[in-house]
Design a protein around this nucleic acid. Sequence first.
RNA 1: CGGGACGUGGCUCAGUCUGGUAGAGCACAGCGUUCGGGACGCUGGGGUCGCAAGUUCAAAUCUUGCCGUCCCGACCA
Length: 506
Amino acid sequence: MAKKGKTAIEPTRDEDYPEWYQQVVKASDMAEKSPVRGCMVIKPWGYALWENIRHNLDDMFKSTGVKNAYFPIFIPLAFFEKEAEHVEGFAKECAVVTHHRLEQSPEGGLVPAGKLTEPLIIRPTSETIIGDSFSKWVSSYRDLPILINQWANIVRWEMRTRIFLRTSEFLWQEGHTAHADKEEAVRRTRMMLNIYARFAEDYLAIPVMKGEKTFSERFPGAVNTYCIEAMMQDRKALQAGTSHFLGQNFSRASDIRFQSADETEEFAWTTSWGVSTRLIGGLIMCHGDDDGIILPPKIASSQIVLMPIVRKQSQRQEVMEYTENLAKALKEKRYGGRRLSVEIDDREIGGARGWEWIKKGIPLRVEIGPRDIAQNSVFVARRDQTPKEKTSIGRERFIIQIDHILDEIQHNMFNKALAFRKKNTVSINHREEFYQFFTPKDQKKPEIHGGFAMSHWCGEEACETRIKDDLKVTIRCIPFDNEREDGECICCGRPSRERVVFAKAY
RNA sequence: CGGGACGUGGCUCAGUCUGGUAGAGCACAGCGUUCGGGACGCUGGGGUCGCAAGUUCAAAUCUUGCCGUCCCGACCA
């Protein structure tokens, strides 16, 4: 008999959203905390997801002419110091290597011995070290553009960490490009943001808003920062990807100069853009329910688990053969640009086995027992439906329709997330209403509240700061698809010509 | 770095106030009965009680110091 409540995850999202998140991560078997402060161990089920994200994005990048390369994890301090705003933005988060050797200390134990003449920082991002290479690679406009991406780990020594969302070390991709022409660099910045948006929506099934950051939220050293922002189920915003137009700031700092067609010497225009393992956190918070994570079929670690039902040993061989045959047939099929990944779980039958896969978020669970084999059918449960809803489908029909079923799940997930965002995005014109919107009723144990507020902003940083201090609400972005509209700043009442997205953020 | 709390089998925790030589639930292993919605019974393995010093006949328990973790704040691509 079941002894737990109705949900596989406790507490539920409504009861305690942050704790729900931690429990979902644990139950999904994707990652766990490591003994190292703020770092995580990504387990196979989580890493497979990252691999799929990586493969798909990598293809998209390459289709635009980007090539992969790799640069060192260590950055000489002197490089890092070159761009003033960049230093200011990242200095506090840098891990620094000052020694290079260990020795036995007289008191026992190992101590660092050889002190480095110049400290090395562990990359928090690679603009400066890649810029140094670019400066050597470029001498003529004919050398441009350079379109480089690297898949790497980076370290940012954050005060408070949360698995997948903000860890001291994380995996990401960072693209770096250099152009002879300003407009071309801006186009590239936009192009990459569009790729992120398409990937988020088509693969992760996460609807995103594209827009530009305000000055205060801009990447340190950038001229413009574009971003995609997604709404999580606690109605907070998650920055899911960013693309920066760096102007000539970093090319001046790294001395990326070239001779133009009309024989003048000029600085290159550079861009950088990245997404990280944070996307996995976004996936969990966007799609998860009170039974655990729900993986979108296109990037799921696996799409299908087959669970043989063996009640008597005498049936075992027949059931296993049928199951393995089905697995083989399914693996022939392609979905989302790659072969279907199919798991067979032949552990003892019982509810626990099924629930484990629910918590891992696999899109389809298929039970195969003697009854099904007798009618040449399979018993299918979809993760986007309640655990009870299982349907018997003829084996051949199931195989033929598998991509339609998975597509349907993929679309359902996106539409559900989009409906949620729409429901919790409101236009607010009055200051009082704005403050009310972002203030929980129960201050001691805040309930899920707020959302995206589309409101007017005069463009002054003072107003931004004021709202941040009062409510912890920030401008997530100035949407690209904004319509011009006259209004009054939600904070000071001065005239404004467009609305921006206000929200609490991760 | 300020405020608070906590370190006891793999996990969650009880035991600490009132010192007497370590427990529960879950997980794990074996056997049996079960089994198409989270099974049950019996048996078993596993802990220098964060570290160090002190008090004591005796310390998980009292004292001091250290280390670490979590929460709130500050900070934050």
